[in-house]
């Protein structure tokens, strides 16, 4: 079930989004300060089939969501996200991986499968985004990969009351470029999500060109784009905070805002 913002909020949100777009055009990329760029949160892309970055379906998506997360939250992100193969030991240098695609891919090697399994087992989070959910080629490849890496832990739908939907923004469900109502799916590992899988092309809703223009129309309009961005921010926040928002101290506040009883 999809939830829309109220009309007045939609107007405010649209104005804010417009302001954000203008700001992104006019403002220089914030200067990295501090201990080092490499310690910042990197929305690292997964390299499959030795594909080049420009061959990714939404090449700017990771950069845009990293920018949004930095602008909207206190998270320090790398504004030029890196890429790595699953069999590259450097995947253990940053615990968030982003895998997007719009077509099927060849079955990864055993080393890559083992790399993915160890990455998740040791604390990493793989976010998978199907950029072409109307076709099943990418979906089939992803499910084969996950089946090989986690044979005893199948993908399961993530309920709308999961912490993921309130790690920063209060959301009611998934959102992306497409208007489908497919729930997010995930693989749990020791009480946390090790894999999150979206079939709504969230990257499509995030992507902008160098001039700040949205690259893809979103079926639900700008409100849905904003929800998709918020969900992307929540995913990054979840990777860093996990179930922090489930702590007892947060419950009364969040329940009140959701209209429930603490």
């Amino acid at each position: 079930m999809r939830h829309r913002l109220s009309d007045s909020r939609r107007l405010v949100t649209s104005l804010l989004a417009l302001t954000s777009a203008l700001a992104s055009l006019l403002t220089l990329v914030p200067q990295a300060r501090g201990i080092g760029e490499s310690t910042r949160v990197d929305v690292r892309g997964v390299v499959l089939d030795n594909r080049r970055e420009e061959d990714e379906p939404r090449p700017s998506a990771r950069q845009r969501i990293a920018w949004e997360a930095r602008k909207r939250t206190s998270i320090e992100t790398r504004l030029r996200p890196s890429r790595a193969r699953l069999d590259d030991p450097s995947i253990f240098e940053t615990p968030l991986l982003y895998l997007a695609g719009d077509s099927g891919f060849a079955d990864p090697s055993e080393a890559e499968v083992v790399g993915l399994r160890r990455f998740v087992d040791f604390g990493g989070l793989l976010f998978v985004d199907d950029a072409e959910p109307t076709r099943d080629a990418f979906d089939a490849s992803v499910r084969r990969l996950l089946q090989r890496a986690f044979p005893t832990r199948p993908l399961r739908p993530i309920p709308s009351d999961h912490t993921l939907f309130r790690s920063f923004y209060l959301l009611h469900g998934p959102a992306g470029r497409t208007g489908g109502t497919r729930p997010l799916e995930g693989i749990e590992r020791e009480g946390r999500m090790g894999v999150i899988y979206s079939r709504s092309d969230m990257g499509g809703a995030w992507a902008r060109d160098n001039l700040g223009t949205w690259q893809h129309a979103v079926e639900g309009g700008e409100t849905q784009r904003e929800l998709a961005i918020r969900l992307g921010v929540n995913v990054i926040m979840y990777a860093l905070c996990l179930d922090y928002k489930d702590d007892q101290v947060h419950a009364p506040f969040i329940m009140r805002r959701r209209g429930g009883t603490p």
Binding site: T13, K71, V249
Partner: peptide
Amino acid sequence: DLISFFILRTANDLTMAPSEELALI
């Protein structure tokens, strides 16, 4: 027994949402 508080947003951050749409305390 852990009590944890993370600063998720600073005064300089633009959350692009009114506070009732944020899970912040």
